[in-house]
Simulated scan of single mutants.
Amino acid sequence: MRHSPPSTSPATTLDFSAPPVELARSLLGWTVLVDGVGGRIVETEAYDMDDEASHSFRGMTRRNAAMFDAPGSTYVYRSYGLHWCFNIVCRERDHGAAVLIRALEPTHGLERMRQRRQLEDPRLLCSGPGKLAQALGITAALDRRRIDEPPFELIAPPDMDQAADIASGTRVGISKAQHLPWRFTLAKSRFLSRKV
């Protein structure tokens, strides 16, 4: 499925049916909002069903069922019983692939983010998947939603070249498939969870 962004950038699309590595790179520079709160995506990680670190590696379960939904759906899960993590499903339905949104540069609704996170420094508001979900108010209630329907909004970068300086490296906090360079960042961003 291809998503056509708002009229601010009608010529630009995201292909949610693409492999997760491709989508993870393509999402960099886009702005994601939840009820008008959010920012520019600066860090992502790819997960696919033949990847041992992926929740889908051993097949569909009750916990990971959203990962097998239609491309462009959301997959929200709790990590270590503490933090919500926000993913966008890709590939075809029933495949089991997604992109984890790891960090944002806050641009919309900073005061609401500061209230939710109880801190002031904008560099720390969304510099990690759990922080990002808390700042945007993402919980299990937003699991299995469409990323192109309210309360979500995806806005293309005004200049797609701004995402050209992309760095890749290994993913964070996993014990398997640690060698895969499936974490992607806007290399010059000050808002990453950690440098590549």
Rank of each mutant, 00 (worst) to 15 (best):
W30R: 04
F68H: 07
A133F: 03
S189T: 12
T107N: 00
A164I: 10
F191C: 13
R144A: 13
D159P: 03
A164T: 08
G39L: 05
N87A: 09
S175Y: 07
E92R: 04
T139C: 06
G59K: 10
P150I: 04
K176H: 12
L136S: 01
Y77E: 00
H55F: 08
V76K: 15
S127Y: 00
W182D: 05
P129V: 04
I155V: 11
P151L: 07
I41M: 06
V196Q: 04
L125G: 01
A156F: 02
W30T: 01
L82P: 00
S127W: 00
R117N: 04
L33F: 03
I147H: 03
A97I: 12
A140T: 10
H179R: 15
S73T: 15
E105S: 10
P19K: 06
T139M: 06
C126S: 11
R123E: 12
W182H: 12
D35T: 10
E43L: 08
H55W: 03
G36D: 06
P151W: 03
A133E: 06
Q118A: 07
G39T: 09
G38P: 08
R91P: 01
L27A: 02
S7I: 05
I147A: 11
L180I: 13
L154E: 09
S56N: 06
D143F: 07
A156Y: 02
V42S: 04
G59C: 14
L154K: 04
F68V: 03
A167E: 13
T12A: 12
R91C: 12
G96L: 07
D148W: 07
Y75M: 11
I138L: 06
H3W: 08
S127D: 15
F86I: 09
D148N: 13
R114Q: 10
R63C: 02
G72S: 06
S56Q: 06
D143T: 08
M49T: 15
K195A: 11
P129R: 01
R58I: 08
R2A: 07
L132Q: 08
I174E: 05
V172N: 00
V32I: 14
P6N: 07
R40V: 11
A65W: 12
R25W: 02
M49Y: 15
R58H: 15
S168P: 01
Q115Y: 04
K195Q: 12
E22M: 07
R144T: 11
A163I: 08
Q162Y: 10
A140I: 03
V99D: 02
H83P: 12
K131A: 09
L14Y: 11
S4P: 02
S17H: 09
T31H: 11
T185C: 13
D148R: 00
D161P: 00
A163E: 01
F184L: 09
L124F: 10
H95D: 15
C85P: 13
R145Q: 15
G81Q: 14
D159H: 13
C126F: 03
P151M: 08
E92N: 09
A140F: 01
R190M: 11
P5A: 06
